[in-house]
């Protein structure tokens, strides 16, 4: 067992996911099998291999610094159930731990 239930639960909470006991059990099994599968990487000599490869060896295109306002900002705002005076309202950020 690579990760305990508690560790997996902590990771879930870091991802803002609260799991039921049943979900947690399934996840623990899944994650541990998965990590075992990834251990196969250790068979490869990766020391001198370039990391962070992209599917295409592109270079980042650069956009001209020209203003093009988005014409449908209201369409963005309207999709939130938390808008008040064009601001997004969220509950208190600091909460008792």
């Amino acid at each position: 067992m690579k990760l305990t239930k508690e560790e997996v639960n902590d990771i879930a909470l870091e991802s803002r996911l609260v799991l039921t006991e049943k979900e947690l059990e399934g996840t623990v099994k899944f994650i541990n099998n998965f990590l075992t599968m990834l251990d196969s990487f250790k068979e490869l000599d990766l020391k001198d291999v370039e990391p962070f490869s992209f599917a295409e060896t592109l270079e980042c295109p650069l956009r001209a610094d020209e203003i093009h306002p988005f014409e449908n900002t209201q369409g963005i705002i309207n999709q939130s159930a938390h808008v008040e005076d064009n601001l997004f309202k969220v509950p208190r950020i600091m909460e008792a731990q």
């Binding site: 956009r63 610094d65 203003i67 963005i76």
Partner: peptide
């Protein structure tokens, strides 16, 4: 700069809230 780092919205902040926004910076 005139525009934001990853989209073409203006960097001028002297505007009402949530007006210089687009799908990218949102």
């Amino acid at each position: 700069t005139k525009t934001k780092i990853f989209c073409s919205c203006s960097t001028n902040t002297d505007v009402p809230p949530n007006t210089h926004v687009c799908p990218v910076c949102m």
